[in-house]
Write a protein that binds this DNA or RNA. Structure first.
Lengths: 268, 268
DNA sequence: CTTATTCTAATTAGATAATCATTAGCCTGT
DNA sequence: ACAGGCTAATGATTATCTAATTAGAATAAG
């Protein structure tokens, strides 16, 4: 709530502010646009409303038709702005009789998505991903050991049981294990950590699946069991140490595989 | 429509349809129909190319005209897709003779923006932010203690000196301190951790600035000094412990201020 | 009579087409 | 060297059509 100065982070909308524009002849709810790109100006105005606290999730903003009139632009230009706002997770657009533009409901997955794209573009190595994931998750289990509810524990036990069932199926076990880690992070009740974990999860999936064998799976299972026990006993330090070692093992195995691969390529 | 080939992977974070997990085939259920708009389909295909490693920053993708022909849609529909891709930071669009669509260069600032929107909508607490930041930074200094180069150390010393100079100016000290933390994370040479830190940095700035006093600044300075010493001695464990305690202090102070504020509001 | 279901019509976004305006790099002619 | 025109690209408009969604009326069942 106390973040009024953040709206300036938007790239396009900030560079072309000319508040000296002619005043509205329209209904006065929105300023009519005269900027470098009209759609960016519209995005900026609606963002501003959100950060000024004038818009709350679920609020009806208008229809494409009505908004295009209010902003004084064509419907297509307004649609351009809506696509940007939608991609930014600021509004939701529905078709049909009761359709139109509404302020979006929060969706942490969206931040995870943005982060994943940037990591991809930057060409970040798998080692970097694992290290970052370790940071988020060590903190998460520390918190989980303190704040996990009974439901969290039940979910974790259930997920661990699914891991046991899948122990012979290498790929299935990796999937269930990731779900277990997700349950752990959820138990921390921290949406920022959850978003970070989700962002990295998709990227590390493949790398982990490559190194999976039934023997390793059984070792991982033991480790998961002990982490869960520590969380259940509210022993934050032990839980953090255990999950840290767990990640270090993953990193080491991955580094070994990587080295082996390089040797093989050199021989070939 | 030319090719509806790529229909896999759950990249619809921009156009969130049902996030419902797929059900098994056998249990009397049908496979969910892939109902999406043409522009979302185009976004999905280009995203897929990025995640398959077929697109690198700076690559020329095409012009609006050529792409609309290749995808078999009108130019306006393609523009809708481009607005979404642009908002996601996947492509950059330039006007003019040598213009067109190119794969974007990574821009960490974009996280801060995406995160700010989601925090605004979800109302994530500052405590959650601090906890997440703590996770990333503890891991970062651990790595920094192992991997920091001579240049990193020089940069850290220089930044610490600037902190010393600003110790009497509350706001200036917070700014220089944040820069010090940034140097620490940089010294870890992990872009994923750096990106996470950058995303959270803007959000915690104000909260930290509120709790700043010269007395506290001097204590913070000591702590920074000791962290840097640990990093210089390659003592990862001590560095991690120290920075963890440092964050815990920040969290505690913030919680105390928060409590005080609530009491004041109740009395008023 | 009440409740559940089906139809229908109104509303709204999705998409197309043709066209003009604006921008920016390139190139030519003095 | 540089002014000015050429050209290829996006930005924006208008008009029109299609597809999706739902409120509400009509209808059937209990």
């Amino acid at each position: 709530m106390t973040t009024p100065a953040l709206t300036r982070l938007d790239d396009r909308a900030s560079q072309d502010r000319t508040p000296q524009d002619r005043m509205p002849y329209g209904s006065g709810r929105w300023l009519q646009v005269r900027a470098s790109t009209a759609s960016a100006e519209i995005v900026g105005q609606i963002r501003q409303r959100l950060f000024d606290g004038l818009l709350k999730p679920g609020d009806f903003v208008g229809t494409e038709g009505s908004l295009s009139i209010e902003f004084g632009v064509s419907r297509i230009t307004l649609r351009d702005a809506l696509r940007i706002l939608e991609a930014n997770g600021i509004v939701e657009v529905k078709v049909g009789k009761a359709g139109g533009v509404r302020v979006a409901h929060p969706n942490p997955e969206r931040f995870a998505d943005a982060l994943a794209v940037q990591l991809m573009l930057a060409g970040i190595s798998e080692t970097e991903i694992f290290d970052a994931q370790m940071g988020a998750e060590v903190r998460a289990v520390q918190l989980a050991a303190r704040t996990a509810t009974q439901e969290d524990i039940i979910a974790l036990e259930a997920q661990l049981a699914r891991c046991v069932d899948a122990v012979e199926d290498a790929e299935g076990f990796v999937r269930e294990s990731l779900a277990f880690h997700l349950c752990l992070v959820r138990a921390a009740h921290n949406r920022a950590l959850l978003a970070q974990f989700q962002a990295l999860r998709h990227l590390s999936w493949r790398a982990i699946a490559r190194t999976s064998t039934p023997t390793r799976s059984r070792r991982v299972l033991e480790r998961h069991r002990s982490v869960l026990d520590a969380v259940k006993q509210h022993d934050a330090e032990r839980a953090a140490t255990l999950i840290g070692e767990h990640f270090q093992q993953i990193i080491d195995i991955h580094a070994a595989m990587r080295a082996e691969q390089i040797v093989n390529e050199a021989n070939a």
